[in-house]
Design a binder for these strands. Structure first.
Lengths: 209, 209
DNA sequence: GTCTATACCCCGATAGAC
DNA sequence: GTCTATCGGGGTATAGAC
């Protein structure tokens, strides 16, 4: 591996090998890892690749994270925290007839307003999300919790399926968009349309525009 | 690795090391590979695991297949052949108003009547299907071809998205069913329902039951 | 905080006996 | 058709200098 030149160090925010105050190497690792895990999958991505992309060595990675699994945990944490915030919010609301639609809308925004990066990651790492989730069950378990909150106390199993599929409509839209020449806006629009038709008869307050 | 005992050989259809006529080792390898690739993913599944499950060694695997990739190609071939048969059939039909619905129905049956094994494999091996498809583009390219046949010559991009998502409704139904306690019939029913609502306005002849 | 160097393991794949 | 044995390589992870 070639030595890191001075110009490269400056680009990465180091001077003479001393990292600037407010260093964000961990965040950079997260970003690169998310990108590579999404493009090639968790198993097919090596620590060497991640390090190379950052202009550091594998060993340096281990200063910031204890293991490869710890790196993907970092990716999950961000997302799981968003899920938990939504769950907490929803549980604190009075159960009005409009609440289910409101919860779904927030779920949808959560997954689209800051781009589709996390969805693309989820699509490409289906197995890794099951095997390396920080806590047992992880993301899917939280999705089920949200489904329950949307569905309410008397929700039937077919209804739960429909709600879950509506929540995953962004995922299939991303999959579908891969083959077509669809940009993010078209993907999001298609996902919203699909979710609408799935929830049409279920959520009275959802999307009458 | 322990030597294979006589009883084990008999179970696998060999006597004194000589394979019976009509041996189906290749088929057994396919079956085990499909199972393990689905459970753990292509990358996370080693040839040692596959061999161990079959009671043979890695080296024996190489008598039947040239490489690990050749094994997954075998899984694809079966599925791709089904796709091609559907495409060929559809292209030979006169374009009546009912044809799109008929094509979709056949697609749906193709993916459900012999169980959900191939869908589960596809869900768990999203990346591998892209990277190790026998021909470039592989499955997704054929799906696009079928979308075009369903949509007809004047199909718009949003319509293509809807049709593609309808075709992938079985995939999200399987994903959704993982968290819920849904059996295959419930998953298939949910997928059909979702596809129906997605195609409602698009396919005049589809499913007025 | 990052480096070089290395340990250790398992992977896919091959050679050659039986 | 299956075996034992082995090869080369890349994987994660660690030790210790700077």
């Amino acid at each position: 591996m070639a030595a890191v030149g001075a110009a490269e160090r400056v680009r990465r925010g180091t001077v003479a090998g001393v990292r600037r105050k407010g260093s964000d190497t961990r965040a950079e690792i997260q970003e690169v890892a998310l990108e590579l895990f999404t493009a090639n999958g968790y198993d097919a991505t090596s620590l060497r690749e991640i390090a190379e992309r950052l202009g550091i060595t594998k060993a340096a990675l281990y200063y910031h994270y204890d293991s490869k699994e710890a790196i993907i945990h970092g990716v999950f944490e961000q997302r799981v925290a968003d899920f938990d915030a939504l769950i907490e919010w929803a549980e604190a609301q009075p159960r009005t007839p409009e609440l289910p639609a409101e919860i779904f809308q927030r779920w949808f925004d959560l997954n689209t307003t800051s781009g589709l990066r996390m969805i693309r990651f989820a699509v490409a790492n289906h197995n890794a999300m099951r095997d390396h989730a920080p806590d047992k069950g992880g993301a899917m378990q939280r999705i089920q919790r949200i489904v329950a909150l949307i569905g309410g106390p008397d929700v039937t199993m077919p209804e739960q399926m429909r709600i879950t599929m509506a929540m995953l409509s962004i995922n299939i839209a991303v999959m579908a968009g891969q083959g077509l020449a669809a940009d993010d806006d078209a993907i999001i629009a298609a996902a919203k349309e699909a979710a609408t038709s799935l929830l049409r008869d279920l959520l009275p307050g959802y999307l009458h525009h």
